[in-house]
Computed example of a mutant assay.
Amino acid sequence: MASTETHTNCLRCGRKLTSPRSIAAGYGPTCGRHIRRATVDLSEYKPHQIASARDLIEDAAIIPLRGHVFTTISTDGTETYLTHPTNCTCPAGRQAVRCYHQLAARLLLAA
């Protein structure tokens, strides 16, 4: 009999996720705790950018690609961007403005 169990991997460490809560979050409990406790200099960002970066991580809309590069999904889900802690291909990032995608990448890398 074939197994119909759906599984995904943690977006931070790559380990297999088995609990429904972890699968929904995209992170295991330990990685989630590390991300929540990560300290990054937030002085360069506005409060709404900080909230958006945390939402991006909670929604598992930022996915490690390779090295320090991530794929991020736009707020409305229609576009994807390549994001690095210092650069992003989103409209704000192309204008050399710090965006919340970059902050989310910084938070994940600090964890």
Rank of each mutant, 00 (worst) to 15 (best):
I73C: 08
A60D: 04
T71I: 06
P91E: 11
T71V: 05
A25D: 14
I73R: 01
F70E: 06
P64A: 00
I50N: 15
L82W: 07
T83C: 04
P91G: 10
Q95G: 08
H84W: 05
Q95S: 10
T80S: 03
N87V: 02
I73D: 00
E58A: 15
F70L: 06
A38N: 06
A61G: 10
L42W: 03
E44N: 13
L42C: 03
R33Y: 14
G93L: 08
V97S: 07
A38D: 06
P91C: 06
T89P: 03
R33S: 15
Y27Q: 12
T78W: 01
T78H: 04
P85E: 02
I62Y: 09
D59V: 11
Q49W: 13
K46E: 15
T80Q: 00
E58G: 13
E58R: 06
I57N: 02
T39Q: 14
G26A: 09
R94N: 10
R54D: 13
T39S: 13
A51D: 15
E58Y: 11
G67M: 00
G26H: 02
L65Y: 11
I62F: 11
D55K: 07
S74Y: 01
L82H: 12
R36W: 08
T39W: 11
G67H: 01
K46L: 14
T75N: 05
T83M: 00
A25N: 11
T78Y: 02
G93V: 07
D55C: 12
T30Y: 10
I50F: 14
I63F: 10
H34G: 11
A96R: 01
R94Y: 02
Y27L: 13
C88Y: 00
D55G: 14
R66P: 12
K46Q: 12
V97C: 06
R36A: 15
G67Y: 02
P91S: 10
C90Q: 09
G77Y: 02
S52R: 10
H68I: 05
L56K: 00
T89H: 01
A60M: 01
T71P: 07
S74H: 01
H34M: 12
A53T: 04
E79M: 09
Q49D: 15
S74M: 02
A25G: 09
Y81T: 06
T39F: 11
Y81V: 07
A53V: 04
I63Y: 08
V69F: 09
A53G: 06
R66C: 06
I63T: 11
A60S: 03
G67C: 07
V97D: 12
E44S: 05
Q95W: 05
V40F: 05
H68L: 11
I73A: 05
T39V: 14
D41T: 03
Q49F: 09
P47D: 15
R66K: 02
D41L: 03
I35G: 03
E44I: 00
Y45P: 08
G67A: 00
A53Q: 09
R66G: 12
A92I: 08
R37C: 10
P91R: 01
D59F: 11
G28A: 05
C88K: 00
A60G: 02
